[in-house]
Design a protein around this nucleic acid. Sequence first.
DNA 1: ATAGGGTTAG
Length: 578
Amino acid sequence: MQFLKLPRLLMPHMRRIHLHSQPLPSESTYRIGGIDDAVALIHRMVDMHPLPSIVEFTKILGMIVKMKYYATAINLYTLMEYKGVVPFTVTFNILINCFCHMGRMDFAFSVMGKIIKWGCQPNVVTFTTLMKGLCVNDKMLDALHIYNEMVARRILFDDVLYGTLINGLCKSKMGNTRAAIQLLQKMEGQLVKPNLVMYNTIVHCLCKDGHINEARVLCSKMIVQGIFPDIFTFSSLIYGLCRAGQRKEVRSLLNGYCLNNRVDEARELFNLMIERGEQHDIIIYNILMNGYCLNNKVGEAKKLFHRMIERGEQPDIITYTILMHGYCLIDRVDEARKLFHGMIETGLVPDVWSYNILIKGYCKIERVDEAMNVLEHMFLTNLVPNIITYNSLVDGLCKSGGISDACKLVDEMHYCGQPPPDVTTYNILLESLCRIEHVDKAIAFFKHLIFERSFAPNVWSYNILISGCCKNRRLDEAMNLFNQMCFKNLVPDIVTYNILLDALCNGQQLDKAIALLKYQIVDQGISPNLRTYNILINGLHKSGRPKTARKISQYLFIRGYHPDVQTYLINELCKGYH
DNA sequence: ATAGGGTTAG
């Protein structure tokens, strides 16, 4: 792995900068140790007579950008221009890159005007930089427009431009991986050929989205073309196989785990890699171990853990956290704790994340006192808990019946605020109030929060209260809350509608439920989920209307919504949840 | 040689 880690060690500040063109009287080489050195150097250079060449200035600006000091780079450029340094295209490209990273696409575009003003020509790099900026700032349509603009200006595309575009397509909110694949296919007969970066980009996206089979097809294609998978390709595939079949919403409902049998395929791939002597590293071990943990095979994960140590790989903090999480998922928190101490013994310093896993674990098995002890331990080591730490504790306190302690903790957060409570903190309390105490108390507390603590409720907050009202058969109040949330421009989601549908079905108002489904859910473009299906069909069957149930099934089916065997199974598992 | 694409895990 030395090979891969090397570039990371070669940080910009380790480089030496040579001012061959205009040496200073005393020395011709500067050591740039950090951002301060770079800034100081530019300040000295702008006052030299004659001025050093623009190439030297641009080199240093480039280093500053690599250190991610975008605003600094821009300020220094302004100083340079003021002192009479004449920029060229490369300098402008750096500026555009800075503005893109700062999310200021308006300024990035204004640099284009500057380029023309200074008599320079934008080149393929200029456009690639702009395109990347538009992609990451979620303006994919404008990015495609850049592409057309380049065609009009007859600027030749190169592999980096295509790589940028492919990545943009894959990651855009439209999730257009298919378009990216099409673009790749179109390139095959062209001058610029698809390369490893482009394939890896698409394979990674396909795997993340769970389209593991398509990713494999693409891998075969790249091999046929003589492009061989590297460590990134393998890690994407292994990650994809570990997560295959795991639906995010279900995973969260089932407290993080959901079974699939493709982890074994992931392991086969891993073994294949090792047999072939491919490069592999700690990250691949971590991905696979996490796959085992999420699929209820902590034992396998632990075996892998020992194996990696035998092979001379040093587990890192993430390795330990993954294993700890695995044990917490099956409620073996003491095992997680042992690992935690083992980690400290090897000289690793636990971070907030690893503490949070332990705290969450103790809360889940209702040993909140020990969770609080862990919090104390965090304070002792001068680690600052984050909002997840506190929210886990608040939830734990609520679930073990200590709602008043939970309120106390939230008050502390509110008054001494490091960190202050967020909307999730309050939602946890509201949910608990609805469940344990009374919905009236929850609503009163809700109002208090809005007026006294300028609480900004979200859709989830309303869902909690609406559900609370419905469970107490107070449909009118539920509808009032529903209207209130719409009035606040909060858009009800499928969870909101499922709550209402459930209430209508329970209140024998099935025709209203059907109208809600047709005119407020489907017509508004909201996708019904499995739960929606189940609520309605069950409701209709219970009311002795099997014909209507079939009609509704058909209605949903022809619109592309249909449950399969697995979804029914999941529905059964998730009963009682919305 | 100064500018632009994929950095995967909790």
